[in-house]
Design a protein around this nucleic acid. Sequence first.
DNA 1: ACCGCCGGGTGCC
DNA 2: ACCGCCGGGTGCC
Length: 890
Amino acid sequence: QRRKIVRGFIYRLNRPQYSARAAHEIPQPSASTSNCSHDFSLSPFSLAAASEEPDADGSVLFGHLQGTVVGLRYYSGVVNQGEMVGLVRQPQNQYDRNAVMVANIYGNQVGHIKRELAAAMAHVMDNNLAKVEGVVHSGTKNSFTMPLMLSFWGKEENQNTVKENMARRGFKLNTGGGKATGTKPNALQHPGSLLKNAFDNLFDGLMESEDGEKQAAEAVGTPLLPHQKQALSWMCARENKSALPPFWERRGELYYNRLTCFSAKEIPERVRGGILADDMGLGKTLTTIALILTNFHKGKPLPVEKCVRVANEFFSDRRAVCLASAIIKCLCTCVCVRRCLYTFFFVCSGVDSSITESADDLSARTTLILCPLSVISNWLDQFEQHVRANVKLNVYLYYGAERNRSKAFLSSQDVVITTYNVLSADFGNKSPLHGINWLRVVLDEGHVVRNPQAQMSKAVLDLKGQRRWILSGTPIQNSVKDLWMLLAFLRLKPFDAREWWNRVIQRPVTQGDRAGLQNLQTLVKCITLRRTKGSEVNGRPLVAMPEKTVCVEQVELSQSEREEYELARNEGRNTIGRYVTEGTVLRNYADVLAILIRLRQHCCHPDLLSKTSLDLGAAATPAEMRERLIEKLRFVLASGSDEECSVCLDSVRLPVITHCAHVYCRPCIAQVIGTEQETARCPLCRSEIKTNELVEFPQEEMEEEKNTNPDKWRTSSKVQALMGNLLRLRCEDSSIKCLVVSQFTRFLTILETPLREHGFSFVRFDGTLSQKKRTQVIQEFQSPAADGPVIMLLSLKAGGVGLNLTAASHVYFMDPAWNPATEEQCIDRCHRLGQTRNVFVTKFIVKGSVEENMVKIQKQKQDLVEKAFGCRNPDRKTSRMDEIKALMEL
DNA sequence: ACCGCCGGGTGCC
DNA sequence: ACCGCCGGGTGCC
């Protein structure tokens, strides 16, 4: 009797609506009696649990098992023929701590796994020995129990443990045929070139011209280019039209998802928004501003106050904008001042209250824009530039210690701009941003939120907004995995839960299933608009782009340079060869890197070679050890070798160095140590590591030692090659501006001497520049003044993606980069919208040197990344090894 | 649940 | 009557 009461209670909790199955038990059944649909009243527990889902990468199928779902009659969740279900452990279940709950895709509970089987599975699941997935092939009309096909997936090394564990309890895993994986078994399991091409083209041809063009609202002062009108039209349509999300179709009374076989009575929640993935320079910011002003509620423009009469007031507003923009620019500049930032808001006019609809849906007014700090000033500038001067648009910069945290205030604005960092700092701390239901949330440079573990990602996913947009020129950085974050933000159901993403998309794709890839393509296509600067519409280029010519100029070393180089090379080859035979390359990774850098420096200029020894060998005291590690870290960072953190596989942020001399992001390695506790080992070389042994780079030290004595200056073959080019170019056309790019900032310093000698006026741009200086330098370089600088010495990795250097039309790469994409990005800084001349790129490569090998590897590496995209770059370490061997011709 | 299981009623054919 | 058989009550974890 008591049990019954409890059950009834749960039962009511789980079913806010009476579903069909309950009809016979309830005196007054609801109108619908369809038995194969789901109500959308979601039980809250499911998605939260599912989003903790780990990666499916590298999982192996252990086998299948026919199981039974029981207790169907107690729950409202229903499943269709072929539908995938989720299995969730319920260790707190009062009747059986081995309980395994079965839920459909929307998280509605269907039933439980039969007790005996659950007992066997619990051990496997709790110890993460395998991930168990279920698909229902039959019995969906059953009232009490139904058969369920289970598949066990996991790491190869756990396969036997799992099989034995299951067998011990009388459940034999079936390793035969490939049925029941969720997706229908599809031909051509071939991860070769087909896949590679398909992924390459994933974001290609996503132009949607059927939408036609849309005129921007009057308040937009800048006339839109045709492709921008197209984008505006597309964005408005995505916000307003109620098209079914990808893979959903109407089947009679129901909506049906053909991938997961899930069906629902109500129209599935559609995604109002998407990914605007246009190449940079095509005007994503302008288009977004136009969207904000043009598409308020029901396709009407945002009601904005116009002030025609009071010119004075208007000017003061304008001035406020300029002031704000200027202050931001200089505040963003130096790291140390950031803390003292204070807030200000501008154009703070009274709230336009012409929209007073009480309906929840219509009360939202504000668009929240999130962006990296570096592009805030760009947004402010663009609002100023593109919004008609007589229009009062309330834009609030939510930044700085004094920011106004009032929800009422924030939600009365038209636009609130803030940074990802501010958002994640606020997150979990009574964040007002998370308490507002925004009209629209826009993630600018959306690819920066990518690591789902990161606090920032969680903060972003937790935002409430009716419409959601991601702006990004490069939506995928490395792999399919990157896409999950984007889909999760867009709330593209059911893929916002990791389990369904992994099962339906990520695993099939990484395992080379063509259908999986097709699905991914469909998915992306539905929500993305992407044009590149080379795109054409009706045979006409989107925007006229001047041509780009890339050539390699081989440089011969002088005899003495060659002798020095060979000496260093042989020495390095011996050392690395020894590491290779000993199998200690990774343990000595910093040394290997140092050797390679030295060789590359030899190719550029002999004076680049740092005199500091990198020998860690005999560090007497801890202080000494620390000093040497800092030295090493400095060396690794200053050389601009594009170090990536082996944990997050991204460029290192907040770099720290371990005692075994490997560089990671502090948060990444801290997490590794946190999870492994005392047994923590360096992910690269497996040496023991401890938190208190991590050495940080002292912030103040970022600037480098200057004063290479000009008296002692000497030239090098590469310097000669460059100067030859520059002088010739000046004769031909003295108005042409050039970028001279190197990874070695010291090389840039060396180059200053001959430039001065030959009377070139130049500027220098590298990572050590404060933000304020940056804008100054760029303005100076971009300015068409006759006596302005004609050359910019540019360090390869300096500056963000948005850097605009269109004044230059010639680019000289003094040394090759590990990562060809970095070079491409650099070229794109001048070969972009606004470039009027043809662009010429020259790459200097020393003949018969490590540089030539680097170029070869660049190509191979690109192939490799594309082939293995998605897998967690499984052989990253070994491929690094191969790289090193190839570089040294071992 | 058109089952299995439990436990009470029952007991030649 | 320490069994078998019958038929009603009952039923996830």
